[in-house]
């Protein structure tokens, strides 16, 4: 069979809503796009542990502390799970991780913004996880089996995080003056980056058409962003908080319109010039470097105990 015939057959399978599984024939470009997306997603989970993990020691009640540790643990679990999904495409977790540490692989731009107060933990849960769920619910329909199944599982946990974040924001919005100020400040800083994290406008998104055709994405960035605003804005407004977009309004058909997004900022952060790019990657690099002797010891121990065959 020629490459064209194989591709045609592959696209027919996708047309029939069949899942593509590891080992099935797939166009090289499909494989590459999936490795890119799944590994970026995995890196995002791993780096996403940092902005919230930073607040674990400061959690102001035993209950909040428990919830936050569990949440950050889930993110580590999602990272692990996604690296495994990527490995089904013929890459190793180690090489993917190295590309991330070297700055060759991207991760979600949102994690390059600082978490400056305890209320950020709630706002990240509500907005950032909320935006991520929108994206991930779509990806749960994606044509590649392992990614689709990973998303189903991850979405279930993210939905829980989203609820917990929202509960916290709503409580503080109705709380003491200090709590209200703190949570409004968190909204001021996280609203725009949350809209940006759903990706550039369709007109600027070079990957989207092909990804939609191959059933990797089933909606465009703007469609997902629109859903996110329609779901989140009314609840934020009802809580008494002010969304930092004077142009935001609903037209007579109920459609939400937002003001212009500062894409210069977005691209700058993506390129590595965000407020925390260096800090976040530096922390992961430190953890990696500080853990080298531990991983060396593990390997040496296994060789002694089980023989060199264990690593053959």
């Amino acid at each position: 069979m020629t490459e064209e015939q194989k591709t045609a057959e592959f696209e027919e399978r996708i047309g029939r809503d069949e899942k593509i599984e590891p080992g099935d024939w797939m166009p090289e470009k499909y494989r590459k796009q999936l490795i890119r997306m799944i590994s970026q997603h995995a890196h995002s989970e791993v780096i996403g542990m940092l902005p919230e993990g930073k607040w674990i020691p400061h959690a102001p009640s035993l209950r909040r502390k428990m919830i936050l540790i569990a949440k950050v643990q889930d993110e580590a679990g999602h990272g692990q799970y996604l690296y495994h999904a990527a490995e089904t495409l013929g890459v190793t977790r180690e090489e993917l991780y190295q590309a991330f540490l070297d700055g060759r692989a991207k991760y979600s731009s949102i994690f390059n913004y600082p978490s400056l107060s305890w209320a950020d933990v709630g706002m990240i849960g509500w907005l950032v996880d909320g935006a991520a769920i929108k994206n991930q619910t779509m990806l749960a329909q994606c044509s590649y089996g392992p990614y689709s199944r990973a998303m189903v599982r991850i979405c279930a946990e993210e939905t829980f995080h989203h609820k917990q974040g929202k509960e916290m924001v709503l409580k503080y919005a109705a709380g003491t003056a200090k709590q209200r100020d703190m949570v409004q400040d968190a909204l001021n800083r996280y609203w725009w980056p949350s809209l940006m994290m759903l990706g550039p406008h369709d007109s600027e998104s070079t990957n989207t058409p092909q990804l939609v055709k191959w059933g990797v994405k089933t909606k465009t960035n703007d469609e997902v962003r629109q859903e996110f605003i329609a779901e989140t804005a009314p609840e934020l407004i009802a809580s008494g908080l002010t969304i930092p977009d004077p142009d935001l309004h609903q037209d007579e058909d109920g459609v939400w319109h937002h003001g212009p997004i500062d894409w210069d900022e977005f691209w700058n952060v993506v390129k590595g010039n965000g407020p925390c790019n260096a800090e976040r990657l530096g922390m992961r690099q430190d953890a990696h470097d500080n853990g080298q002797w531990v991983r060396d010891a593990l390997e040496a121990y296994s060789e002694k105990k089980y023989g060199a065959a264990a690593f053959a």
């Binding site: 542990m49 674990i56 950050v72 580590a76 692990q80 953890a287 853990g291 531990v294």
Partner: peptide, 16 residues
């Protein structure tokens, strides 16, 4: 305090 800083992702999970 190890969460996010452990030597292996598996141990981030274990310590949490």
């Amino acid at each position: 305090e190890w969460t996010g800083h452990a030597p292996l992702l598996e141990e981030d999970i274990a310590l949490a």
